[in-house]
Design a binder for these strands. Structure first.
Length: 479
RNA sequence: UCCUCAGUAGCUCAGCUGGUUAGAGCAUCUGACUGUUAAUCAGAGGGUCACUGGUUCAAGUCCAGUCUGAGGAGCCA
């Protein structure tokens, strides 16, 4: 077998005892024609491979360049040097793939994240992105583990959808119609009868409505898949293609929903803290270095790992929308007119500066806001008895803002139909959604969590484009 | 989409009120050294100053437009 290699992560934990091993990886640095720092992506730590002087010919040594791929056979011995417990004394070195040093763009030094974004195909080979993507993987794994342990069914909702029922944003159209000669109806509109699906279709903006269908048969389901929004958003928190987790639970009210969401967030953070300590320590240090460039008042009071531990140890603050408005109205910030958008009172939508104030200045921890005015929320959210609010909840976290949006869903057919009429949502497109309310309707609830945002929160990366492998943003679909 | 700032070597940046041949560190190459840890030391090569147009005797520097990126805002997850 070709691949009998030992992972460097595992190898570094061995007690050195002249074990014969075979390792493969990419060269990070090569010093003094003797010392190769070899990395295989299993950890940020490099394996030191030592080549005895004079034992390897010059032509080979010249090909050991940064990022060349190597197969090394050797024995594990204690390292006489200071930086590491053990090293490999090489008996043979095989170049699997050369790397032209004149052209290879990465150096053993700090690169800007903007530059690395332009070479996203190579940035995994840096410590920062190595850590980020190992943490991303751990979080994804923990998500499935959390739901599986609780008896949730992983449901695959369609990527191509005919409904924009949620009105969650601008759509990417899916069509096979010839773009240079689109068939038209007599009134000038596009004739979708000639299109592949014989109707207008788009990439999904959410799997929620379909997940609700699953929940009313399986009880508890969740989705975890890609989602698409064609909004022209140019921010550090938005992507045109992102991954979303959407659990949907039958026999759940808003309270149950909030409990689950809080447990869920804590579970996956704890998983990463327990399983990716080394990566998180590296990212904590990285963030600290980066923040040294900032003025004092802009730095985070807590270091990354400290912040994660803090979130695990404390209950999320739970307040109603009405209480949030009161707190904002009474705040010194408001009295000194420091908000760019003034607090105009009950019924207003919260701006991100208001959410930040609540989370970062007032409570200084994650906050769940519930019972929003129905006018500023989606049609499917359950109307409360006061006639003014709906059973919605948003979870806000420091530094990111909204990370979860959820609600108890309206299970009463008459109330749902009435709300759809008020908001001009055509019933004929959603007959299947309404059917669920006709045949054994039950109280149910769910939420959506933007995966990249939780990865940002856990890794401390400031820009969402640095926590997804190949970001899709307006004007950018490279790779 | 709006506001603000930026774009100079492969990377990170300096370049003053416009003025001779545009600089540094790192990277790369050559040599020395050989238990190094982003090794060290010596030397060398490397530039359409984002692009287009304008002002001027003279533009990296000033003006206009375009493109790209960043920060903030809106929309949201």
């Amino acid at each position: 077998m070709f691949n009998k290699r030992v992972l460097i992560k595992n190898l570094l934990n061995l007690e050195p005892d002249n074990q014969k091993v075979s390792v493969m990886g990419w060269v990070r640095t090569f010093r003094n024609d003797q010392f190769i720092a070899l990395n295989d992506g299993s950890t940020n730590k490099n394996l030191q491979v030592v080549l005895e002087l004079g034992k390897f010919d010059n032509e080979l040594l010249k090909r050991i360049t940064t990022s060349a791929a190597l197969k090394v056979d050797g024995v594990v011995i204690p390292s006489p040097g200071k930086g590491q417990k053990l090293e490999i004394k090489a008996t043979s070195v095989e170049i699997l793939g050369d790397s032209d040093p004149e052209k290879y763009p990465l150096q053993p030094k700090k690169h800007s994240l903007e530059f690395l974004r332009e070479i996203a195909h190579l940035r995994f080979r840096t410590n920062t992105f190595g850590s980020v993507f190992r943490v991303r993987h751990a979080l994804a794994f923990a998500i499935h583990e959390f739901f599986n342990d609780r008896g949730f069914l992983y449901m695959h909702t369609p990527i191509i959808s005919a409904s924009d029922a949620e009105g969650a944003g601008e759509l990417f159209h899916v069509t096979t119609l010839p773009l240079n000669n689109v068939p038209k109806n007599e009134d000038g509109s596009v004739n979708f009868n000639e299109d592949f699906f014989q109707r207008s279709t788009n990439l999904t903006v959410s799997g929620q409505l379909e997940a609700e269908l699953g929940a009313t048969a399986f009880g508890n389901v969740y989705t975890f898949g890609p989602t698409f929004r064609a909004e022209n958003s140019n921010t550090a928190r938005h992507l045109a293609e992102f991954w979303m987790i959407e659990p949907e639970m039958a026999f759940y009210d808003l309270e149950d929903n909030m409990d689950l969401a809080e447990d869920f967030i804590k579970y996956i953070i704890k998983y990463a803290v327990d399983h990716n300590r080394e990566d998180l320590e590296f990212l904590t240090q990285r963030l600290e270095e980066e923040e040294k460039q900032l003025p004092l008042e802009k730095r985070n009071e807590m270091k990354l790992l400290g912040k994660l531990e803090f979130v695990l140890q404390h209950q999320f603050e739970r307040i109603t929308y009405t209480e949030a408005i009161d707190i904002l109205t009474e705040s010194n910030y408001n009295k000194k007119k420091k908000f760019q958008f003034p607090i105009t009172g009950w019924g207003m939508d919260l701006q991100s500066e208001h959410e930040r104030y609540l989370v970062e200045k007032h409570f200084k921890k994650p906050v769940i806001i519930r019972n929003y005015p129905k006018e500023i929320k989606a049609f499917y959210m359950r109307q409360n008895d006061d006639g003014k609010t709906v059973a919605a909840m948003d979870i806000l976290v420091p530094g990111i803002g909204e990370i979860v949006g959820g609600s108890q869903r309206e299970e009463r057919l008459d109330k749902l139909e009435q709300r759809m009429k008020e908001m001009n949502i055509p019933e004929k497109d959603l007959w299947w959604y309404l059917d669920i309310r006709r045949y054994g309707t039950v109280p149910h609830a769910g939420f959506g969590l933007g995966f990249e945002r939780i990865v940002q929160f856990v890794t401390g990366m400031g820009n969402i484009r640095d926590v997804i492998a190949f970001p899709r943003t307006p004007g950018n679909a490279e790779f």
